[in-house]
Design a protein around this nucleic acid. Structure first.
Length: 494
RNA sequence: GGGUACCUAGCUCAAUUGGCAGAGCAACUGACUCUUAAUCAGUAGGUUCCGGGUUCGAUUCCCGGGGUACCCA
């Protein structure tokens, strides 16, 4: 148990005094709230002040005591409002209670709404009710004219104590409310197009749909290993086979890899699959999702991010991987020998796992030399066939795929395919991929049940994956994934 | 995986060349019936992230460990 500091001791003593001296239950069961702070301020009519009583509740954030009349500010679900507490209005017992309250306590207030002499709309309290006594002190953040003093600045403490961060750091709650709105809006768009939202297994006997190391867990009763999914793809495709012709899922995926500004071990993906569609249909859906959501959240299609201006107005540019290499890196990879390609890869400092493979070399060069330059939205298309076994080759040149990745602000936001549905081809490519496990530990194992599903017959299908956390970062201006995850993964403290 | 920086009171931060560990806010006591970063007077509050080492003496220098942030692969 944590050692008790003196501030907590003092607050526990006050808690006992409230019970024993004032005969007040510090943790009552409910309280009737008639108005929230923002409504009170919005509804206030200076020309005809109402004498009607309002009842509000919230957490005490500031206290200014002055003898027999004091001010405090409470914070509720959507803002703050000042409370005027005068002994003449609330009575002696209530005022004694007020003197024992601390920043962080949750109170209910009844009173009338008026402006103070200095013009601040306030509740002139007629009674106070303690709703919950706080015994652990909050960081004290002061604010004047929008300027914040003594901000709760230690990111480690903020992430480890997000409940505190949400209370005291301006804007944090708003970011997460935006996240909620973004996801809601995306669902609305897809629901409107006749997509069914489904839930597929998080715990899986085999994993696939991406190249990544999984988290491993164990089922005791079945005495078996289970993996946390690395993508949503394998089960959503089974549903396409099963006759759901349009499905999507927004859910957590888990990848056992490092943590940085754009990676958290658990993150949220949207994947959708549409029967009878191809990757160009997926481009149209991607454009609609991002553009329309940006308009709904930010009010327009131009967003400022890290000092750059990003224009999300559609349609977006489409550029083949090999053309992007020509344009941004000055490399005509189609005219280069394998040896030249290998030498270029080596120059970038990257390494190719296993033997030289033409398509993977081109993919690596793209990642190393081009990605960082793709600030405005662009669909990068036609990756080499070796980059994934789950996508159809393009009929006009079978060395390349009917695939795109969407880049915005040098970050991969979406990835889409004309999904592979030739079962003979699919069995071969997945088997070959599983063999790569000897040189690439991220290559997923062979999934016989998945191949059998494809063998049953999957319609031509367009598939799309969107990194929700990255979309939220883009639309909220946050530069770290940790600032758009309520509870980012942290190492244990001790 | 590599590099750099940071970790001091509940919070935000100081501490000169290695020389008594400090301030503001918060807390506590008192004054104050329209304050708003309230004000005024006073009081208290520390395992300087952890473990070693050098030294008469370490928050400071060295080694190891932990955590976080930023940059790079």
């Amino acid at each position: 148990m944590e050692e008790e500091n003196s501030l907590i001791k003092i607050r526990k003593d006050k808690l006992n005094e409230i019970r024993s001296e004032l005969n007040i239950n510090p943790f009552p069961y409910n309280y009737t709230v008639t108005h929230h702070s923002s409504e009170i301020i919005k509804n206030f009519d200076d020309s005809a002040p109402s004498e009607a009583e309002v009842s509000a509740a919230g957490r005490i954030m500031t206290v200014r005591e002055m003898g027999k009349a004091s001010f405090c500010t409470i914070q509720d679900r959507d803002g703050r409002i000042q409370i005027y507490v005068a002994i003449n209005n609330v009575g002696e017992q209530n005022y004694k209670l007020f003197k024992k309250l601390d920043i962080g306590d949750i109170i209910g207030v009844k009173g009338t709404v008026k402006k103070t002499k200095t013009g601040e709309i306030s509740i002139f309290a007629t009674s106070l009710t303690l709703l919950s006594k706080s015994i652990r002190p909050l960081p004290v953040v002061k604010e004047k004219d929008g300027e914040v003093f003594d901000a709760f600045a230690d990111k480690e403490l903020r992430y480890r104590n997000r409940h505190v961060d949400l209370i005291v750091t301006p804007g944090v709650k708003e970011t997460f409310i935006k996240r909620i709105a973004i996801i809601k809006h995306i669902k609305k768009i897809l629901d409107g197009k006749g997509f069914y939202e489904v839930e597929t297994p998080v715990l899986q006997p085999l994993y696939g749909g991406a190249s990544a190391s999984p988290f491993t867990s164990r089922h005791n009763a079945l005495d078996m290993t289970l993996y946390l999914r690395i993508s949503l793809e394998p089960y959503l495709k089974r549903l396409i086979v099963g006759g759901f012709d349009r499905v999507y899922e927004i859910g957590k995926c888990f990848r056992n890899e490092g943590i940085d500004r754009t990676h958290n071990p658990e993150f949220t993906m949207l994947e959708l699959y549409q029967s009878y569609a191809d990757f160009t249909d997926m481009m149209a859906i991607t454009e609609e999702i991002i553009e329309q959501t940006a308009i709904a959240i930010t009010g327009g299609t131009t967003i400022a991010y890290e000092g750059k201006e990003i224009n999300l107005k559609t349609p977006w540019r489409r550029l083949k991987v090999v053309d992007a290499l020509k344009e941004y890196a000055g490399l005509d990879v189609m005219a280069m020998s394998d040896a030249d390609l290998a030498a270029e890869v080596k120059k970038t400092g990257a390494e190719i796992k296993g033997d030289f493979i033409w398509g993977l070399a081109i993919d690596e060069l793209f990642k190393q030399l081009v990605e960082e330059k793709l600030v405005q939205p662009v669909f990068i298309t036609h990756h080499p066939v070796e980059t994934t076994p789950l996508c159809k080759p393009d009929y006009s040149d079978e060395r390349f795929l009917q695939r795109f990745e969407l880049f915005i602000n040098a970050t991969e936001i979406a990835n889409a395919y004309s999904e592979s549905n030739d079962p003979v081809f699919q069995r071969t490519t997945l088997y070959e991929q599983s063999l790569r496990r000897s040189v690439d530990e991220e290559a997923p194992p062979m999934d016989e049940n998945f191949v059998q599903a494809i063998e049953t017959g999957m319609p031509p299908t367009g598939g799309l994956g969107i990194g929700i956390d990255r979309v939220v970062m883009l639309l909220t201006g946050e530069t770290s994934i940790r600032d758009v995850l309520l509870f980012p993964t942290m190492r244990p403290q001790d």
